[in-house]
Design a protein around this nucleic acid. Structure first.
Length: 278
DNA sequence: ACTGTTACCTGATTGC
DNA sequence: TGCAATCAGGTAACAG
């Protein structure tokens, strides 16, 4: 979102082209026409949604889904034959000559356009829980939200109504940091555990944003690789590797010492250390 | 009401 | 080498 803001805020959209309207949900008719010529007043984020406010009273609501990304390059003009890029569903060109493209092979992402005053009532935004980095997300709130829930804490944290913006990787990483088992029932996360989990979630996200921010400086690279945070994952994708907690010394032979373990919860992969996460 | 499963879609990887 | 099966980030419809 910050990478986009640097190229879009205050800029006029010289033209917009929607190449595929059949994303996760149908993109509304007239989408590209309503963007063309508009000026971008500002960008903000709510949960995993990016909101781009335009003059004229419209706002774009963008979700990258699982495989979506934004490519930012210089517009080379009509002389460049510009080979068609696969899965490039939306292309914008700004008055400063930046070409901004939404690429999403799996098309789990979405694009919507609503009147700005209706953004908070949007069906995908109205039921989102608090922002994890804002004051409304604290131990008291989290414990109250989890009270009585029989679902595992891992599954509860993926529920965007409880807290907005956490995905499968960050939930695994935050639970590892908080030393809480992903299998623990949500209702049993209260008191000190809730306090520690809030701290762990905030730290995980803050570090990830800082790492992603550093990669965004490379925005001109068409490779478009996003996020150096993947190199900092402690448990995700590390099945069988040793636990990174300093106190978790390897003791081969003990059943809980098989290192990072993978299991399936609610159809999603969970990675954790059964020894330090309780 | 709450909880778990499945479908949506394409591409990378794995296994035969 | 080639092809089929499996598995990925997210969300919501659906079933029990």
């Amino acid at each position: 979102m910050r990478g986009l803001a640097g190229r879009l805020e205050g800029r006029a959209i010289r033209w917009a082209e929607l190449r595929r309207p059949d994303l996760r949900w149908a993109v509304p008719a007239g989408f590209a026409a309503r963007l063309t010529g508009a000026r971008v007043l500002g960008l903000r984020r709510r949960g995993k949604y990016i909101i781009m406010q335009l003059d004229g009273g419209d706002s774009v609501i963008l979700h990258l889904g699982m495989s979506g990304r934004m490519n930012i390059t210089r517009e080379h003009g009509p002389t460049a034959p510009s080979l068609p890029v696969l899965h490039e569903h939306l292309v914008l060109v700004t008055d400063e000559g930046w070409r901004i493209a939404f690429v999403d092979p799996r098309r789990f992402g979405s694009l919507d356009l609503v009147r700005s005053e209706a953004v908070h009532r949007h069906r995908h935004l109205s039921s989102l829980g608090p922002e994890p980095l804002e004051a409304g997300f604290d131990a008291a709130y989290l414990a109250a939200s989890l009270a009585g829930k029989r679902t595992p804490i891992k599954t509860a944290l993926l529920d965007q109504r409880i807290v907005a913006g956490l995905g499968n990787i960050y939930v695994c990483e935050a639970l590892f940091r908080a030393r809480i088992s992903p299998r623990r029932l949500a209702r049993s996360v209260a008191g000190t555990r809730a306090t520690g989990l809030v701290t762990a979630i905030r730290a995980t996200l803050t570090e990830a944003i800082a790492a992603g921010g550093s990669s965004l400086r490379d925005y001109v690279q068409p490779s478009g690789e996003l996020g150096y945070f993947q190199h900092a994952w402690k448990v995700y994708g590390r099945e069988g590797e040793p636990c990174a907690h300093a106190s978790c010394a390897p003791c081969p032979g003990h059943p809980a010492c098989s290192g990072i373990t993978r299991l399936t919860q609610a159809g999603r992969s969970t990675f954790f250390c059964p020894k330090v996460q309780r």
